[in-house]
């Protein structure tokens, strides 16, 4: 299944302003141990970490365990300091990573 992330944030902000960033990802977050319709046990496979950097500096990290819902949503804030890319990187069990970027223009 294609990785699908929806990042909602303002495209531009004034310097010093606090912007809210909302991130919704499509992911089953299989916590492991469930039995599917054919009687097989589903192994654990979740996104275990979301790291956000802003113009290269880390600004937020979300450590996820099995208690995070499927299609996890998270909202956080950051202070607009300079025009730059916010880069989002998810790490999945098994080592796969997914990245997305969003640009914030600071006026």
């Amino acid at each position: 299944m294609a990785f699908n992330a929806r990042i909602t944030m303002p495209a531009e902000a004034k310097a010093g302003e606090i912007v809210e960033i909302r991130v919704l990802v499509r992911h089953p977050m299989d916590r492991g141990g469930q039995v599917d319709s054919e009687g097989r046990v589903v192994p654990r496979k979740i996104l275990n970490r979301l790291t956000v950097t802003y113009a290269g500096e880390p600004v937020f990290r979300y450590d996820m365990h099995t208690g995070v819902s499927a299609n996890p949503f998270v909202s956080f804030t950051t202070r607009a300091v300079e025009t730059g890319d916010l880069s989002f990187e998810w790490r999945e069990d098994g080592g796969a990573t997914f990245t997305r970027t969003a640009r914030l223009v600071v006026t």
Binding site: V59, R61, S69, P72, F73, V74, T77
Partner: peptide, 22 residues
Amino acid sequence: PDVARFHLSPRSGRADIRATLR
């Protein structure tokens, strides 16, 4: 029992988090 951890920094501007749990 450990559900989630959110790492913040002074650059967060505000300590204000929302999320969905199980």
